[in-house]
Structure formats: structure tokens, C-alpha cells
Amino acid sequence: MKRVGKQTWLFDEGVYIQAAAAAVGPLEADGPLGKYFDICYRDLYCGEKTWELAERRLMREAVGRCLQKAGVSAEEVDLFLAGDLLNQQATSNYVARELPIPFLCLFGACSTSMQTLAAAAALVAGGLADRALTATSSHNATAERQFRYPTELGVQKPKTATFTVTGAGAALIGRTPGRWRIRAATIGKVIDAGLTNPLDMGAAMAPAAADTIEQHFRDLGASPSDYDLIVTGDLSRVGSVIVRELLAEAGYDVSEMYNDCGLMIYRPDQKVFAGGSGCACSAVVTYGYLLHELARGAFRRLFVVATGALLSQTMVQQKQSIPAIAHGVVIEAAGQEPDGPRSGGM
């Protein structure tokens, strides 16, 4: 493991995703990626009494299914890293309460999926853990009632608004060679472009995503064509166009291989405004669909850049602008030659 350039970690020693799992709610199960998710709930309450308990169940089920797929018991895991959107990270802390694993809680808003994955990979590569488990979750109703309004309140949302994904993703990182290898991670800086509208988070987060992607290319001397897919977390219809434009202005043309998880998870006719968002958006798309495509051979190397709007209800009400962050992780189909012709600076 070494640092390359300013913000990028390169994992030479072989850090693998041993297993991953995704649990989702009804709208996501009904979306185009529905068949790739391990656990689908037909009811937004997931059989629980409150929205918060439903989110907790999603994360607990994703973690359980992930460990089951890896054939590893919780006792054999050395570290658990998780985060979510609720105040005081309620979902993660309460799920960790049920696990006999040392726990680090991380907050990166919707960037938590790649934040925890990057941190876990570094800790495993550094020998501080043999196996590290990561998880993140979000729930449409818990996010609505905490960050916005009661779920049944009549509010006409604009086209720029995003729709929080209901779901949870979990991944187990270890050194045993597996199907997916974590090659690199780029840790983002907090970027605040000065936007204040919490109903347009795509535009607020796009500069952070562009900054991390550019930095990644610079640190590694890589170019967009080194990747089969560069995917952002939840920039949605508004932010994904902006990030493409920002990168084009910096001389990087990503139009061939760029997509956004918030656009992939729902069908265009589902009523989700500009697209999906939330911690679970990048987590379930990556751990459910993208890893499946890597294993199948559809992609060889992808760069997942999870984007987070570090939104605080109080700060927004005090007219403060919205800081944003993006963390990227490069995941490769294992068994590929790491120094193949298309590997660029890696």
C-alpha cells in the first residue's frame, strides 16, 4: 500500500472484496436493477413498526447476507465500518450493537459507501485487520422526515429534487483472493460551491465529484479510457450533466464511460424527480449490480465515486451553503493482469 500523488492510495498487495450484499425497498426492487439485489422488501416498513427500525433491518439483513455469502461468522471479522444519514448515525450504531466486532462509525453523507470501503481496504492492506466489514444504509422516509418534511405533507418538489433510495449495502474486505480486487482509492476534499438549495443537491455535489475524479487522474497519471465505467453516486439528472461538463472543461472526456447510480437504479417512468440519492444509492448499485457485472466480465475496471452532500438542516435554515465531498474507489475484476495494456498509471 502506498500513497500516490496527493490524495490517492494504491493497494499493491491484493485487497479483495470477499462478498457483498444489497437489501432494498419496494421502489428499488421494482426498478431496472431489481433482480441484482439480494433482499427485496415489498413494503416500505420492511415488516417493522417505524421507518427507523425499517432502515435498521435493511442494514442488518445486508450485513447478515454479506457474511453468509462470504462464509464467515461475525466473530471472524476484525473491524466493522459503517455510516448512514440519521442523526448520530443511529442505524449504524444500533446495528453495530448487535455485532461482536470492533466498530468505527464514519459519516460522509451519501459518500459513506466508498468512504467505508476505502478505509476498510487501507486498514486491511496495512495489516490492521484481516477482515473488515463495511455497511451503509438510507431510507426514503427516515431521510424525508429528518431532513425535509413529514412524509405525508403536501409539498410540490421541483424537478431538481432527488429521491432517497431505500436500501442498505454491505461488503466484506479481506486479503483472501476473491472475485473483486480493490486497486486504488482517492479520498476527496470538502468542496463548497456556494449552493444553498437542499432540493438541488446534484448541482451542489458535482464540483466535489469533479474534483475527486480529476485528482484521481492526476495522481495516477490515468485517463478516462483506463476505466470501463466511471460512476458517480447520486448526482442525478442535474448533477451528472454538470460533472461531465466540469471534467470536459478540465480536458477529460468521460462521456463514453460515465454514468450515475442515481440514474441507474430507477426507471425513467418511476416518480423520483431527478433520480435517486442517499447512502444506499451508490452502495446497492455497486454491491448489487456493478460487482455482478465485474464478475460476469462485462467490465474489467470501474471507478466508483460516491458523492455526499454534507447537509445539516440547522445550517441550511441559517442560510449556510452546502458543503460536498466525493470519495472514489477503483474496483477490478480479479484475475486480470494488473499491469495490462489498459492499466494506465497503475
Binding site: 413529514p150 412524509t151 405533507l153 403536501g154
Partner: peptide
Amino acid sequence: DDISQFAGAGATMLLTGLANALASAAIE
């Protein structure tokens, strides 16, 4: 909430919208 998403102020700026605001918060 679906009616309000469609009608905007046509549903929220009436007394019915105020009733919805109270009831939605109470239920939530």
C-alpha cells in the same frame, strides 16, 4: 401529498393544505 405534488399552491395554500400540514405531522 400526491395531490399537492400535482397542484402545488392549488392544494397547499387552502385551508385544506393547513389541515394536511397538521395531520401529516401528527401521523408522522
